[in-house]
């Protein structure tokens, strides 16, 4: 019963998520119809932006880890450091399509419209830009 009590312990008010005891908050909270996503993009010679792989953004192959890395960097004021880190990875293993710069950005999208092909973000804030030498 003690173990079962432990598992239920995070349900108390004000508890935070953890491991291996969790509040299991996944997808429970309300979502806005606008999506704000922090990420790192590659800039092509003609100015078009495109996504970089999770390995280039976060240093691991895990997409969610890459997105968390970008989010933590933007919200923690470490966009410049992340930009330099990603640039170093881009130089070490250049993407198939060449890019001229790396940008740490926050994009705002109309969530439901974002699935339509050719849709663009409603806005984009560039927190740091690093030119590929």
């Amino acid at each position: 019963m003690f173990v079962v009590g432990l598992v239920w312990w995070p349900v108390r008010p004000g508890a935070t998520d953890g491991f291996p005891l969790s509040t299991y908050p996944m997808f429970g909270y309300a979502r806005s119809t606008r999506s704000v996503v922090h990420t790192v993009l590659g800039v092509e010679a003609d100015g078009r932006r495109r996504p970089l792989t999770p390995l280039l953004v976060g240093g691991t192959a895990r997409p969610k880890h890459a997105l968390s890395t970008a989010q933590n960097a933007v919200l923690g004021g470490r966009s410049r450091a992340l930009c330099q880190e990603v640039l170093a990875r881009v130089i070490a293993t250049p993407p198939d399509e060449p890019i001229v710069a790396v940008e740490v950005v926050t994009e705002t999208w109309n969530t439901l419209a974002s699935v339509d092909p050719g849709t663009h973000p409603l806005g984009r804030s560039v927190h740091a830009r690093c030119e590929v030498p």
């Binding site: 999506s35 996503v37 792989t53 953004v57 997105l67 999208w109």
Partner: peptide
């Protein structure tokens, strides 16, 4: 849809 978008952006 937010998750689909996030994944697309990496």
């Amino acid at each position: 849809v937010h998750e689909v978008l996030r994944m697309r952006l990496v």
